[in-house]
């Protein structure tokens, strides 16, 4: 028959502590698998830069579209269908404002995640700084880097030079 004596209580406490230690150890391992240093130092800032580039690109495109519409308007074409179409172009261009505001919200969320990662690292100590190496991408996947930011990648001239 199980005893409720002091030895039994100490044994139960020991088991609980061992389970808790296992749980903490597992949690540390899982956090390390998230590669927090890489997330904080590279992936999150990169995501912010990509979002900034989206805002910049849509703004440039919107201004180009509006300049063209303004030129049509300035030409003084006396045609209701043309005026209506120009009006619709201006209306549609307002997407850029909304897009910018939505992206700003996403950037704030990224900043919040970055702060939480900092707090997590402070709470768990410096040895959490170890990042597990990323899984190796296959040859083709490693080539899929998407559009590059301003100043990165190669220009068309650089590409042409490789074919000369």
């Amino acid at each position: 028959m199980a005893s409720d004596g002091p030895d039994s209580k100490i044994a139960a406490l020991y088991r609980d502590c061992r389970d808790l230690a296992k749980y903490i150890s597992g949690a540390r391992r899982e956090i390390a698998q998230m590669r927090p240093n890489h997330l904080k130092a590279e992936q999150i800032p990169r995501a912010g830069q990509e979002l900034d580039a989206i805002v910049q690109a849509t703004e440039t495109a919107t201004n180009t579209i509006m300049e063209a519409a303004e030129e049509i308007m300035a030409a003084g074409v006396d045609s209701q269908p043309v005026n209506d179409a120009v009006m619709r172009i201006f209306e549609a261009c307002s997407f850029q404002d909304i897009t910018g505001q939505r992206i700003t919200k996403v950037v704030k969320t990224l900043q919040h995640i970055e702060e939480r990662l900092d707090a997590l690292q402070r709470a768990w100590g410096p040895d959490l700084g170890y990042d597990e190496p990323p899984p190796e991408a296959d040859e083709e996947a490693a080539l899929l880097n998407g559009p590059q930011l301003e100043g990165e990648g190669v220009s068309q001239d650089d590409v042409d030079a490789l074919f000369d």
Partner: peptide, 16 residues
Amino acid sequence: DDYKTMLRIVRNLLQQ
């Protein structure tokens, strides 16, 4: 508006 693009859009719509 703090978005120059938006100012331009509203100005053009008002002009129309």
